[in-house]
Design a protein around this nucleic acid. Structure first.
Length: 737
DNA sequence: GATGCTGCGCAGAAA
DNA sequence: GCGCAGCATC
């Protein structure tokens, strides 16, 4: 293997073999190259067994890429290596050894939808009101607690004094009990239970600690407490831990990522070696300068400046659109022009946005112009109803304890089994400590279920049992065929006779193809593995190199990818940065890192756009340019369309009290440094802030859009009377929320 | 028990 | 502008 294709810093990282190593790798600095060469070097120069190497990546796609690149360096050695995401690696550990903590190897994985269904059933049992506490808020809380590694019991000890937490504590407990009963694990559990297993069974811990002499972690800046704990446990014996990350690209704080993991690496792992990769091989100089200019506005960061040998390249192209339609037309127009004039392929383009909802208009225009595209994320294949239904059947066959899947499919397609029947089944199951499927075997003993309904239940039970019994001996695709035949699930859609149903039928056939493909692979076995893989698919995993289409995705989904031409759209206040960053410096810094990630995805051409107006909740609203635009170096920008960015920014400033200026980032000497803070203004104990809903005696309901200095006037948009400017001292208004 | 309609709440990012 | 929950109706 050749080391000499690498620069000095890269070589230093690759050649450091033993002990803890942190590679601070800026965007596009060749970290995958370093990781793959390092692993190849271990195998080739030190005769390390591939089976003692683990590499944890952020997506399955990255894992596969890494395997391929290692094999192209040293041949087919990766089948014995453990390369995968945190979740996939935990599944592997739990399948093998989960029985030590009470999980059979047939456990199923609950995705967010399954999780929601389970929480819902707990809500019912606990008599909680969905309207008072939305299920989703508890869903986030459970995930948050698990990311911080708090069990229901630990959570209770910490918060039992707070009466507002009482419902949640009860719910969290019940949720966790039911997961166990169902032999199911949610995403966060995969980590938590793997850690629990290692901590509670010394022999198992020793086995893995012994086995893995070299452990690698990619995107280390985005690890959370649980992931960090797992890594520490695994590498405790050999202490050969090699992590790669970039604090400036930490964008997952909201799902528990703890940036301190990378900041305190040296303290956590004494004797750590640090290597910085600062040469960028991806982007033109202008793009890199633009990125550096934005990220340097973050006060707390390891100082690091990416540089490049590359040419300046094109200027950053800037366009202010009238509204989101205009923005989309501009983007698509540029794509068409570049394809025609500059020889770009459609797959050279990526359109990046802050929120998934922004994809709709872009898709509409791409459709009109007949340009093929692919949206990454959004409604995923495995989240579609018909797919979840079929998968639900398969899950139930593998694991009869899975009540969530049972409830999902018992009346799908319609078997005339409604709420009443389910309630009775459930009552019987609870009384006799059975799972719902087993309760079906006793349907004759259950009062109130008889005739046609009882018959349907018996048939359902027989179906699951008989197919389930053949899982280990027959091809999954055969079982799949029989399932479709006996449930008549496709036949039911055929009866509907509409496009929607036709699409669903296609999807079910597509699922069959996927299963058949899966069966051909050698590195996996059986339906269990298939189901786990299906649950753990990430958005990025679905990006195919084959298709020639424009890619649309969120900035988050774009992490780790690169494209010749990038469009960064919707650079507007309260969209990007998100409105949630308004009063929160840390959030704003994370948004800025997200902006940095977006800019550094571009290799040759970068476009930035924003709109003057945008439809939001179906309402046409004025927009203000993003603070990030004002942080960009104007000399790097080329204006497309008529108005220069400097004029747009200046204009925005001068209209301080206008309708177009709901909130300004102006520095106020009486407030902390954040330009994002704006204090409410108060009047005789009343406070008024933009965004407040008000009730006026004559004009009815409306919303405050601006509050003038010293509360001289309020601009309010009334639902029925339009815009009014009123004096809060005399106007008959009150805040209604 | 199935089906179709209406209105509310909403959209911050995800394995 | 969309999807889901709840309700009315068959």
């Amino acid at each position: 293997m050749k080391i000499n294709g690498l620069n000095a810093a890269q070589q230093e990282a690759v050649l450091a073999v033993e002990g803890p190593i942190l590679v601070v790798a800026g965007a596009g600095s060749g970290k995958t190259r370093v990781l793959t060469h390092r692993i190849a070097h271990l195998i080739e120069a030190y005769d390390i067994f591939p089976s003692s190497i683990m590499a944890i990546t952020f997506t399955n796609k990255a894992a596969n890429e890494m395997k391929n690149r290692i094999e192209s360096l040293v041949g087919p050695v990766t089948s014995q290596m453990w390369v995968g995401t945190f979740h996939a690696i935990c599944v592997r550990i739990l399948r093998r050894d989960g029985h030590h903590i009470g999980y059979s190897s047939d456990f199923v994985i609950y995705d967010t939808a399954d999780q929601k269904a389970l929480i819902k059933s707990c809500f019912k049992a606990l008599n909680l009101d969905e309207k008072q506490t939305p299920i989703q808020s508890f869903q986030y809380k459970i995930s948050g607690a698990k990311n911080d590694m708090l069990s229901p019991e630990q959570y209770e000890t910490l918060f039992s004094k707070d009466f507002r937490e009482r419902d949640f504590i009860k719910l969290y407990k019940m949720y966790q009990d039911r997961l166990k009963q169902n032999q199911a694990l949610d995403f966060d559990d995969l980590l938590i239970k793997a850690i629990e297993l290692l901590k509670n069974t010394p022999d198992v811990l020793k086995y893995y600690q012994n086995k893995f002499r070299f452990i690698h972690v990619d995107e280390y800046q985005d690890t959370n407490k649980a992931q960090y704990t797992l890594v520490r446990l695994l590498c405790a014996q050999h202490k050969n831990i090699f992590v790669v990350g970039d604090g400036d690209q930490s964008i997952y704080k909201w799902r528990g990522a703890d940036i301190r993991n990378i900041q305190e690496f040296e303290a956590d792992f004494p004797g750590a070696k640090i290597v910085k990769l600062e040469q960028n091989y991806r982007s033109s100089k202008n793009i890199l300068d633009m990125a550096n200019g934005v990220i340097k506005n973050n006060p707390r960061r390891r100082d690091k400046t990416l540089w490049t040998d590359a040419d300046e390249g094109d200027k950053i192209r800037y366009y202010q659109a009238y509204d989101e339609k205009d923005e989309a037309r501009f983007v698509v127009g540029q794509i068409k022009r570049l394809c025609k004039d500059s020889g770009y392929k459609r797959s050279d383009f990526a359109i990046l946005y802050r929120t998934n909802a922004q994809s709709r208009v872009l898709e509409e225009v791409l459709n009109i112009e007949a340009i093929p595209y692919k949206v990454v994320g959004g409604l995923k294949f495995y989240e579609r109803k018909e797919i979840k239904d079929v998968i639900g059947y398969l899950k139930l066959m593998v694991n009869p304890f899975d009540d969530v899947s049972f409830l999902r499919v018992i009346n799908e397609p319609k078997r005339s089994i409604g709420d009443k029947t389910i309630e009775r089944l459930n009552g019987y199951a609870q009384d006799h400590a059975l799972c719902l499927l087993e309760a079906c075997a006793h349907v004759d003993e259950i009062e109130g279920i008889g005739g046609k309904t009882a018959e349907a239940i018996k048939q359902f039970y027989e179906l699951i049992k008989s197919l389930g019994a053949r899982l280990d001996t027959e091809f999954a695709s055969n079982i799949f065929d029989e399932l479709i035949e006996r449930t008549q699930i496709i036949a039911a859609y055929e009866k509907e006779r509409n496009d929607d149903a036709d699409g669903r039928i296609d999807n079910i056939y597509e699922l069959k193809t996927v299963i058949e493909e899966f069966e051909k692979r050698e590195d996996v076995s059986g339906l269990r593995d298939f189901l786990a893989e299906a649950s753990l698919k990430s958005d990025q995993d679905n990006i195919s190199d084959q298709e020639d289409g424009v890619l649309l995705m969120t900035l988050h989904a774009s992490k780790g990818l690169e494209f010749p031409v990038v469009f960064l759209v919707g650079l507007e206040e309260n969209l990007f940065p998100s409105y949630r960053a308004q009063d929160d410096d840390e959030e704003l810094e994370e948004e800025r890192r997200l902006c940095y990630v977006g800019i550094t995805r571009a290799e040759k051409v970068l476009y930035i756009t924003h709109t003057k107006n945008r439809n939001h909740y179906g309402r046409f609203e004025p927009r203000r340019p993003s603070i990030f635009l004002s942080e960009m170096d104007q000399r790097l920008i080329e204006v497309m369309g008529e108005r220069p960015l400097s004029a747009v920014l200046k204009e925005n400033k001068s209209k301080e009290h206008s309708f177009f200026d709901i909130k300004t980032h102006k520095k106020n000497p009486y407030m902390p440094a954040s330009p994002h803070l704006e204090k409410n203004t108060s009047f005789e104990g009343k406070t008024f802030s933009p965004g407040d809903k008000v009730m006026h005696k004559i004009f009815g309901t409306g919303m405050i859009v601006t509050v003038e200095k010293d509360l001289k006037a309020l601009t309010i948009v009334f639902d029925a009377h339009g815009i009014k400017k009123l004096d809060p001292a005399i106007a008959p208004i009150k805040i209604i929320g």
